[in-house]
């Protein structure tokens, strides 16, 4: 464990908590893409199948449980509890264009052709593009609530910090995983446009508005 990975996990956890609280407190999922949350639930499910078979540490196991539980709780709130506030007309990204190519790629490019490894690889590839429906929805509605932009910032920063974690691990642990690194780079690049708007607008107290 190193400071970058720890801060990354904290940032990821806070993003998940921010979103949960936003929906629960405001009893509304307006502006939130249910499709992205569905993809995140798939990402955590396919990545943490070894949750009960491969104990790494209490921290690792407890964080995985929290991630999986909160992603399902978020999906449940969007599609069930507060579905009346779900803005389906703006959440129109074709997720099959994300799921199918990443599934095929995980069969072609992986570290080991075993079910668990392929599912892990699929979850890494899918996570790198899972935010697209949400970013697409924000660009379609032309703006996002400030709390939603904080959620997106925390979520984007987490994988950016993981990039530094991989540099650290390469330097000091002679360790690197090209699949995770390349997917993490793609994931971070997708946020660049949003990061720019967040830093130039939201941090100056303005509302986040994307050019529609």
């Amino acid at each position: 464990m190193n400071i970058f990975r720890f801060l990354g996990d904290i940032s990821h956890l806070s993003a998940i908590i921010i979103l949960l609280l936003k929906i629960w407190k405001s009893r509304s999922c307006a502006g939130i893409s249910g499709k992205s949350q569905l993809l995140f639930a798939i990402v955590f499910t396919t990545r943490y199948l070894d949750l009960f078979t491969n104990f790494i540490s209490f921290y690792n196991t407890s964080m995985k449980v929290v991630y999986v539980a909160s992603s399902y709780a978020t999906v449940w709130m969007i599609y069930s509890k507060f579905k009346a506030t779900y803005d389906g007309n703006h959440d129109t990204f074709r997720v099959e264009f994300l799921i199918v190519p990443t599934a095929i790629l995980s069969f072609l490019v992986n570290h080991d052709f075993t079910p668990l490894e392929i599912l892990w690889t699929f979850s890494i590839y899918l996570e790198s593009v899972a935010i697209l429906p949400q970013l697409f929805m924000v660009s379609k509605t032309g703006e996002a609530e400030t709390i939603t932009s904080h959620y997106l910032f925390a979520l984007g920063i987490y994988r950016t910090l993981y990039l530094f974690n991989w540099i650290w691990r390469y330097q000091f642990e002679e360790f690197f995983d090209l699949i995770a690194i390349v997917a993490g780079l793609v994931q971070t690049v997708l946020y660049c446009d949003f990061f720019y708007l967040y830093i130039t607008k939201v941090l100056k107290g303005k509302k986040l508005s994307l050019p529609a």
């Binding site: 690889t121 002679e174 699949i179």
Partner: peptide, 10 residues
Amino acid sequence: ETNTAAKDEL
């Protein structure tokens, strides 16, 4: 060298 995948990471 490429190590095994980042399985100890979240």
